[in-house]
Design a protein around this nucleic acid. Structure first.
Length: 584
RNA sequence: GGCCCCGUGGCGCAACUGAAUAGCGCAUCAGAUUUCGGCUCUGACGGUUACAGGUUUGAAUCCUGUCGGGGUCACCA
C-alpha cells in the first residue's frame, strides 16, 4: 500500500524524491489508518500544509479505490483504508508459510559470543553476553543469512596458571567427582584460593619492608605461577597434563551451564591454538609498510590518521600481544569460512576501543571484510545492591541465578497455573521455560549499549513487559485453539472491530521489524514488537468473545487471528531464544 | 587531562531513518470486589526528555558548550 501511494504521488509530482515520502501508521488518537507527512512535500506543492494535504488526499482517494476517506490535521494527511484491504493482508499472511522469515540472502555472518576464561565460572554478565549473541544470531538467520556461532575460549595465560598452582598447593588431589563440585566451580575455587594466598604473602613482604610493587612481584606463589606459565609454554609434559585435566573439568561445567541457558556453538576456537597466530600477518604488514618497527625491534601500527595512539603488535622480543592474536584469529576465521560476509563480536563495552583499533588495523592490512565487522557492545549489569565485583564476592553466579529464577517460576506456576495432567518432568520443564524465559527477556529488552539494573524479582513477574506475561498469553491462545480452530481464509467483507484491525496492522509490520532488528542487531526491537502484539491481542480478547459470536464469519476471523498471533509470538520469542509453553 | 558511551515522571525501561498531545511496567493514591492493607479489576496522579544555546516548518533524537555517571587511554587478557 505504501508503495502504491508512493507511486501515485510520483505520478502527480515526477520530481519527487523517495526520501520525502513518509508514510507511517496513524496514531491511535486520530481517525485513519495510514498517515502521509506532508511537510517535506511543501516545496513541491507550493501550497500551505493544510491545502497540500487536502489536495493530495483528494487525488489519492480518486486514484486508489481502497482509500475510502481522509482527513488533514496540521501537516498530517490521515488516510482511511477500507477494511477489506486489511483482510486481504491477513489472508496473505495466513497463506505465507513461516511468515516473517526472509529468504536466503546468500550472506554468511560469524557471530562470536561468550568467550569465557577457563579459570572461573560464568556469571550474570556472561548471561547478558550469551543471550545477546545467541539472539542476534537467530535474528540474522531470520533475515535469511547463514550464521556461524562461535567463541574463543581463553584457556591459557597467567590467570590459568594461577588456579593450577593453587590446586597443586592446596588441592590434595581434589576432583569434581571427589568434591561433588561442578568442574568450573572447583577450578574457580582455586583461583580464589590463589588470590587469597597472594594477598597474605604480599602483606608479609610489606611488613618486612618491601614496597607494594616489589611485594607483588616477589610473592612466592606469584613466582610459582610465572614459572608454571614458562613450563606450559615450553610444553612441559606434567604441566600440560595438569592444564588439560583442569580445563576438561571446566568444559564439563560450562557444558552444563550452556545447556541450561539454551545456547550453543557451531565452532570453537581455543586461545591455546590461536595465540601464536598473527605474527606472519604482522611480517606481511611490515613488508607492505603498513606497520613500522622501532629501534628496539617492536612493531607498531601508525594510527595517527585515525587520531588514536599507535598500537603495538609485536614486542621487542618478538612475542605477540592480544591485538596480534585477534588479527590472526579474524583472518583464520575468514579462511575457515571463505564465504563470510562479516563478523560480529559480542563483547562488553570496556573493549570498545580495542575493537575500533582492531577493525582499523585489519582494514590497513588490506582485509576488506573489516568493513563488515562490528562490535556488539553491551553495558554492565548492575544489581540493586550495587555493582558486581569479583573481589568483593558480589558476583552473581550464572548457575545459581538460573536455578533461583526457576524456583521462583515454580512458585508462581503452582499458584496460578493449569498444571493438571502434567507429570513431574513436564512440570520441571515448564518451570525452566518460565524462569529462563523471564530472565532472557529481562536481559534482552534493554538497549544493549546501556548499562542496566537487574532486579531478579521483576524478571519473572507475570504482569508488565516481561517474558512470562508473553508466555502466559501464548498459553492462552493455545488453550483457545485446542478447543476450536479454523482453517482457510477470511471473507474480505467483514465489519471488523478496531481491535482486530489493530492486530492485523501490527502483523503487517513484522517483516520490516525483522529487517530493522537485523540491521541494528537489536533483540530489544523484537521484544518490543512482541509485547505490543500481545497487548493488542489481550485488549481484543477482553473486548470480544471468541466462542459466543453468532456470526460465523466473524468467529472464523477471530480464530484465525488467534492462530496467527500465536504463531507470530512463537516465532519472535524464538528469535530471543525463549521457548513458549502450551500450558502454564 | 584526551577520546568513547550514557543522562527521559519516585524506580526500571520505550520511542525504527528528526514529526502530531513523549509511551509502557512497577510503585503511589482513589474506588470496586474480598474472611484479608496481601489476590483481582477500574480509574487517577505523576515529565520544560540534566542544563544553556543553535540548525529546522518541526528536536528526547542532529550540532556546540556546561554539568553529572560510566568506560577507556598497557610491551594485561
Amino acid at each position: 500500500m505504501q508503495e502504491l501511494i508512493g507511486n501515485k504521488l510520483k505520478e502527480l509530482y515526477p520530481e519527487l524524491a523517495d526520501n520525502l515520502i513518509q508514510i507511517q501508521k496513524t496514531r491511535a488518537e486520530f481517525e485513519g489508518d495510514m498517515t502521509l507527512v506532508v511537510f517535506p512535500l511543501l516545496r513541491i506543492t507550493k501550497k500551505n500544509p493544510e491545502e497540500s494535504g487536502a489536495f493530495i488526499g483528494e487525488f489519492l482517494q480518486k486514484e486508489i479505490p481502497m482509500i475510502t476517506g481522509f482527513n488533514v490535521v496540521k501537516g498530517f494527511l490521515n488516510l482511511e483504508i477500507d477494511s477489506s484491504y486489511w483482510m486481504e493482508q491477513l489472508n496473505a499472511i495466513l497463506e505465507t508459510k513461516n511468515y516473517g522469515l526472509r529468504s536466503n540472502s546468500g550472506k554468511t555472518y560469524i557471530v562470536e559470543y561468550s568467550s569465557p576464561n577457563t579459570n572461573k565460572p560464568l556469571h550474570l554478565g556472561h548471561l547478558r553476553n550469551n543471550f545477546l549473541g545467541y539472539s542476534v544470531a537467530e535474528i540474522l538467520k531470520a533475515n535469511g543469512h547463514e550464521v556461524v556461532k562461535t567463541q574463543i575460549i581463553n584457556d591459557r595465560g597467567i590467570h590459568i596458571c594461577k588456579s593450577m598452582v593453587a590446586w597443586e598447593i592446596f588441592g590434595n588431589g581434589e576432583t569434581p567427582d571427589s568434591s561433588g563440585l561442578k568442574g568450573d566451580k572447583l577450578v574457580g575455587k582455586y583461583y580464589v584460593a590463589f588470590d587469597k594466598q597472594y594477598k597474605v604473602e604480599i602483606a608479609q613482604l610489606l611488613t618486612s619492608g618491601k614496597t607494594k610493587e616489589e611485594a607483588e612481584k616477589l610473592a612466592p606463589i606469584f613466582i610459582a605461577a610465572q614459572e608454571m606459565l614458562l613450563k606450559w609454554e615450553s610444553n612441559d609434559p606434567q604441566t600440560v597434563e595438569l592444564w588439560k585435566t583442569m580445563n576438561s573439568w571446566v568444559y564439563e561445567g560450562f557444558a552444563i551451564t550452556y545447556n541450561t541457558m539454551g545456547v550453543d556453538f557451531d565452532k570453537l576456537y581455543y586461545e591455546s591454538d590461536t595465540y601464536i597466530l598473527g605474527k606472519d600477518i604482522v611480517e606481511e604488514g611490515l613488508e607492505k609498510k603498513v606497520l613500522y618497527k622501532k629501534e628496539d625491534g617492536s612493531v607498531w601500527c601508525d594510527l595517527s590518521a585515525e587520531k588514536m595512539d599507535d598500537k603495538l603488535l609485536l614486542r621487542g622480543d618478538g612475542t605477540s600481544v592480544y591485538m596480534t592474536q585477534d588479527v590472526g584469529t579474524a583472518v583464520e576465521r575468514f579462511k575457515d569460512y571463505p564465504n563470510t560476509t562479516g563478523m560480529i563480536y559480542t563483547v562488553g563495552n570496556e573493549q570498545d576501543h580495542h575493537f575500533k583499533v582492531l577493525f582499523v588495523i585489519l582494514k590497513k592490512l588490506g582485509y576488506s571484510f573489516a568493513d563488515e565487522c562490528s562490535h556488539l557492545s553491551y553495558g554492565m549489569v548492575e544489581l540493586p545492591s550495587g555493582k558486581m565485583k569479583s573481589r568483593e564476592g558480589t558476583v552473581v553466579d550464572a548457575d545459581d541465578l538460573m536455578h533461583s529464577v526457576m524456583d521462583d517460576a515454580k512458585a508462581i506456576a503452582e499458584e496460578r497455573g493449569h498444571l493438571e495432567g502434567m507429570n513431574e518432568e513436564q512440570k520441571n520443564e515448564l518451570y525452566k521455560t518460565i524462569g529462563l524465559g523471564g530472565l532472557k527477556y529481562y536481559l534482552l529488552k534493554v538497549d544493549p549499549r546501556k548499562s542496566m539494573m537487574f532486579n531478579p524479582e521483576e524478571s519473572i513477574d507475570l504482569n508488565g513487559n516481561t517474558g512470562p506475561f508473553i508466555q502466559y498469553t501464548y498459553a492462552r491462545t493455545q488453550s483457545i485453539l485446542r478447543k476450536q480452530s479454523a482453517t482457510g481464509t477470511v471473507e474480505s467483507q467483514i465489519d471488523a472491530e478496531k481491535s482486530e484491525l489493530d492486530i492485523i496492522k501490527h502483523l503487517v509490520d513484522l517483516p520490516a521489524m525483522i529487517a530493522d532488528a537485523g540491521k541494528n542487531q537489536s533483540p530489544a526491537l523484537v521484544s518490543n514488537y512482541t509485547y505490543e502484539l500481545v497487548k493488542l491481542y489481550n485488549s481484543f480478547y477482553q473486548s470480544v468473545s471468541i466462542f459466543k459470536e453468532e456470526d460465523e464469519k466473524k468467529q472464523k476471523l477471530r480464530l484465525l487471528l488467534t492462530q496467527q498471533v500465536s504463531e507470530t509470538v512463537e516465532f519472535t520469542m524464538r528469535l530471543l531464544g525463549i521457548k513458549v509453553p502450551e500450558k502454564m
